[in-house]
Design a protein around this nucleic acid. Sequence first.
DNA 1: CTGAAAGCGCTTACAG
DNA 2: CTGAAAGCGCTTACAG
Lengths: 347, 347
Amino acid sequence: MGVKIKDVARAAGVSVTSVSRVLNKSEHISEKLEKKVLRAIEDLNYSPSLIAKSLKRNKTYLIGVIIPDITSNFQAMILSRIEEIAGRRGYNLLVSNIVEDTEKVVKYLNIYQEMRVDGIVLMHEKLNRDIGLFLDKTQIPLVVHADLGMNLSTVIIDDFKAGYDATSYLISQGHRRIAMIAGDKRDLCAGLKRLEGYTVACMDHGIEVNEALIRYGDYKLSSGYRLMSELLRESRGEFTAVFAASDDMAAGAVNCIHDHQLHVPGDLSVIGFDGSQIADIVRPKLTTIKQPVDRISECTVDLLLEIIEANEQSSSTHTMRTIVLEHELVEQGSCRAYEPRRVPSKD
Amino acid sequence: MGVKIKDVARAAGVSVTSVSRVLNKSEHISEKLEKKVLRAIEDLNYSPSLIAKSLKRNKTYLIGVIIPDITSNFQAMILSRIEEIAGRRGYNLLVSNIVEDTEKVVKYLNIYQEMRVDGIVLMHEKLNRDIGLFLDKTQIPLVVHADLGMNLSTVIIDDFKAGYDATSYLISQGHRRIAMIAGDKRDLCAGLKRLEGYTVACMDHGIEVNEALIRYGDYKLSSGYRLMSELLRESRGEFTAVFAASDDMAAGAVNCIHDHQLHVPGDLSVIGFDGSQIADIVRPKLTTIKQPVDRISECTVDLLLEIIEANEQSSSTHTMRTIVLEHELVEQGSCRAYEPRRVPSKD
DNA sequence: CTGAAAGCGCTTACAG
DNA sequence: CTGAAAGCGCTTACAG
């Protein structure tokens, strides 16, 4: 653990400059010299220090990723793809899994800055003063997976429209009394926008929004279960369909409904959001708004690296870009047309 | 993005030494000087370079984590906990999500070495020549979540015994013809050991192992589904229970059974492995071998940091340690006692 | 309590 | 094609 470039140079009988050149294939080097160097590297089991290299080159090949919850299948899928694509392009991921809240986000943003990461991917979508300040002044290339209302590069879907579409779909199936298991309103996209889509879709179809039918969760399965049991306890019979802001919550809702001896979609229709693997695990499989995970991941990495590389050329041009990807409504088994006079039957 | 310690020193009218001392709170410093320095740091929005610091201190506070598949809920839970615990102790995670195989593992191990990470957590449990060589000679503190049969520090459960227990449980419920949806035999613990546990448990109870009832998957839900449909196609009626080497595969098996109009546990009992959230999502909930996720994560970080710190004191003592944690059989709804003469009924 | 200077392990003009 | 030397941004004996 102590062999450095100088040792290799000595062993090979050449200068450190030459060793460095062999390592980086940066200039033409005689075959003889190269062979000697490679030999010495092998003999000494030399591993060049990326730390020293980073310091000198002012480039770390590190990307910091801030993700709210890796145990969410949807987020894990995105992270996994980002890792793969970035890795193929020579970048490594520094990952922070912020289970808790906004304070930790600022803490990690600062650490990333001190680590001199080449870029940051931010999947967190709550904003507070400190985060806003940081994002506002940092020079680090950054892609955000949410529309924070700031002048930042983003890769997103249209969460408002997606929420609108999910709700309209239920309405088109004849449902008029629709509950919503929403996310956190402070989440600017997954929380607020999807809820707004729901609200506006209701209004556009002449349906009065009933606040009692809107519940706020944390996207996890357990909160979907809990909120659904609240709904069944407090508002049973007042709704025929549910729109959940995540597949995990939708799955929790489905399980809760089953545990109450009711059927999906016979008694209640449920539509989810994300298109994660959970949607296919639960029975019936969830009808859901599918986010284009692969496209999101690719666009995120592509855009980030584009900004990074542009920055390396001319350090001042910060091109902001917003990429909006299409979502897709996937019909599976958890919704069905509302039948006003249907006699409860065992099928 | 260009202000360095020298600039702070100049702005504060002190030496860089003093700035460094304020930053690191390393020695006593007059209040007056400290105030000037903090002021300058604030004014210039100075962010110290961890890269430079790492080079000098020969310490990066980086832990490299190699994980086969983040989209596995079980692995995500462990990663999430490790991140949390390590973060609390000042370490950051460099994460590689090796979807593919052993080549990539070696590649990332080498990158970690070049990054001079302070330690490595290896969740991968396949071994090839290059990985063996690396593990054999590296000086980097390392904790492996598998028994690779090498002299390495490990945090594991007893996978043989766990496989034995799962199988014995089914046998104790009266099952004699038990299929196994196993992992990859090249996975030394999750693959091989659990399978051996199954085999030996059968033999110990005078049950002949029927190779046709053993299928090999990749731990994912989809392979559980696929293998179960193979079993139902090729060996229907020849088994009354199934042991799957992961909850994901067990969940896939349960869904497959349902899709064949059969019931769990009425027609077939299913036992899973891991105790991940998937076990609670599927209906019926899975009876499963629960791994102590929190304990595994804590012990892994504790052990790794212990080795790291011991190394920093006296660079030679590499204490190998093996920590074996207890698994637990959690009974939920997916198994039931075999009734030889049971008349198929619709309940 | 404070500072000047050497050095961490590399890369890269510059000179030959 | 090859090498000597400066420098990346810090920390830390050493001296005062």
